[in-house]
Design a protein around this nucleic acid. Structure first.
Lengths: 145, 145
DNA sequence: GTGCAATAATTGCAATTGCAAGTTTAGCAT
DNA sequence: ATGCTAAACTTGCAATTGCAATTATTGCAC
């Protein structure tokens, strides 16, 4: 490996590490904001999905959220307990549930969006508009979506 | 909020989400590779730090790794049990430990570096050289380091 | 040099998580 | 229509984690 490649290797090596730090930092910020509303970190994406797609099935949430079914199950247990969502019988399948936000759940929507925007803005603050553009363009490419 | 800002808001909303997915994806890849060596995910950065900075103190590892002290404590318990590191008395402070890699631990070094390089290369594969450059430049700026 | 706040590290305990196994229902092949 | 595989969801249990309290030591203020 020549010097140029070696340098690149070292720089790239720290890539994973930085992604982890960034993810954790955002998680912590989100976590403290969500706690004020009585929500946990894993509950949050589930609640968002329900709000954005009224009547989704748990399996659909799991697929969008890229997490195993039991995570959804348990997140919903909590959300239901707090009266934010309900599991209604699915019209065509007796093993599936249609998940709906209750009125209280729907009322949470603006606050949740505000948190997301705030944390994202805060995190992206050190970048210029052009850099932000670039980053937001690169991420989906990395993930393949 | 005008249409342009709204669109931006939606794109930014997915920013945190995409970072989480990327982080988790890399964690999973790392996790399976490390498992083959008998290492856990939290043990890995600790082992790397010890290899790169022979004789560090646990508090120093915690600081570099940005994690609470008890995480280091427990990671070292495991690494020590596997005979990869030792806690030696600190020359000037009786409450601190100097952490050293054993011979077996040092022998692991090339394999660990190989894993890091592989996973990073794999993750960055969808990007062109220029895009990789750009991304590797943006991350430290975001994190402030 | 005495007392006191801070640092280094560990650990008990409760909460969270992940895995794998369980239940019920669907759909499909024959 | 019967049986068999797969899907949707749940749950018991063990492992991991995080918090807060504990021990031991240090350095500093007076």
């Amino acid at each position: 490996m020549n010097v140029r490649d070696e340098t690149r290797a070292i720089r790239e090596a720290s890539f994973g590490w930085r992604i982890q730090r960034l993810a954790r930092r955002m998680d912590e910020r989100m976590g403290t904001e969500l706690a004020k509303l009585g929500l946990s970190l894993p509950q949050f994406p589930v609640m968002m999905t329900v709000l954005e797609h009224e009547g989704v099935t748990q399996a659909e949430i799991a697929k969008r959220y890229h997490r195993p079914a039991y995570v959804i199950s348990r997140a919903l247990d909590g959300l239901q307990e707090q009266g934010l969502v309900e599991r209604r019988p699915h019209p065509t399948s007796r093993r599936a549930h249609e998940i709906h936000a209750t009125q209280a759940g729907a009322a949470l929507s603006p606050r949740l969006h505000a948190i997301v925007e705030e944390v994202n803005a805060e995190t992206l603050a050190p970048l210029s508009d052009a850099e932000r553009e670039a980053l937001l363009h690169l991420l989906p490419k990395l993930l393949g979506d």
